[in-house]
């Protein structure tokens, strides 16, 4: 099966499609012309740079460099998680980056070693895109999970204190909140797993099929990826929450008020 490259001139034909939203926006004054063009412009620049960078590390294919890249991705994923959940970055960064790094790397290396059976565990072509997918999903799960956890404890602090007063230790008292937030964290992933193949063909499959792989190979990768995403999302959320407890609560088991961001 030949792979059709898209030439830069033919990419212009794709940009022509944008005439439709711009026309509609003009006609009924959606006022989206500017943001449409700005968004597409940004995307093009960002992806172009990402392409150059990926090309560079693909050519080098150096295991340590790849790991360093995953490290940088993990750094940003952790930072974004705490920021999006509107929690205190200073207090939570260390426990959260450690949890996210550990759970994603563990699942990633397991998949590379035992599922895909790679000879070189840190091969760029597998490590970087898989890490991106796992981290992206773990990020979404973590924002929902850890955000939900601390919002709930704050909203309903009485119940937490009541649990403490009737004999729970700190871990026992947060257990109901932990359960709820873990359910929230994996809900989307589970729904995705349920509906996959019927509602939508996921990106990795589409990409592989467009890239010339047989659909039968593509589905096997997809199954592996979905399971890996589910496991790493759950694992990183539960570890993040448990690891954050030590900094989040004071010595009396009460929530540290500094934990919450300004908009909380």
């Amino acid at each position: 099966m030949p792979i059709y490259d898209i030439s830069y001139t033919s990419l212009i034909f794709c940009f022509f499609l944008l005439a439709i939203p711009i026309f509609i926006s003009r006609k009924i004054r959606l006022e989206l012309e500017k943001s449409t063009l700005a968004a597409v412009f940004r995307m093009s620049i960002q992806l172009f740079l990402a392409g150059l960078f990926l090309n560079f590390i693909f050519n080098l294919n150096n295991g340590f460099l790849n790991l360093a890249c995953v490290g940088v991705m993990t750094f940003f994923a952790s930072y974004t998680t705490i920021k999006s959940a509107d929690l205190n970055v200073k207090k939570l960064f260390v426990p959260i980056i450690l949890s996210i790094a550990f759970s994603n790397l563990a699942v990633l290396l397991y998949v590379n070693k035992f599922v895909i059976n790679l000879d070189a565990l840190l091969d760029t072509r597998y490590l970087i895109p898989l890490a991106g997918m796992l981290l992206g999903n773990a990020l979404r799960g973590n924002v929902a999970g850890i955000g939900d956890f601390y919002t709930d404890i704050k909203r309903n602090e009485n119940r937490y204190l009541y649990n403490l007063s009737i004999g729970a230790d700190m871990y026992e008292a947060v257990l109901p909140y932990l359960r709820k937030s873990l359910r929230a964290a994996v809900k989307l992933t589970l729904a995705n797993i349920y509906s996959i193949g019927i509602v939508a063909l996921p990106e990795i499959m589409t990409g592989q099929i467009l890239g010339g792989a047989s659909p039968l190979v593509a589905i096997k990768y997809q199954i592996a990826i979905m399971i890996a995403i589910y496991v790493s999302t759950l694992l990183s959320t539960i570890l993040s929450i448990l690891a954050s407890l030590r900094t989040a609560f004071d010595e009396y088991g009460l929530v540290n008020k500094e934990l919450y961001g300004k908009n909380f």
């Binding site: 309903n156 009485n158 119940r159 009541y162 007063s165 009737i166 004999g167 729970a168 230790d169 026992e172 257990l175 109901p176």
Partner: peptide, 25 residues
């Protein structure tokens, strides 16, 4: 004990089980 006990969501039995599952109880 406080007046507005906003306890566990779910059945009362589950609430009791949860409380008597604590190591102290």
């Amino acid at each position: 004990m406080v007046q507005d006990t906003d306890l566990e969501e779910g059945k009362v039995t589950n609430l009791l089980n949860e409380i008597f599952f604590y190591r102290a109880n």
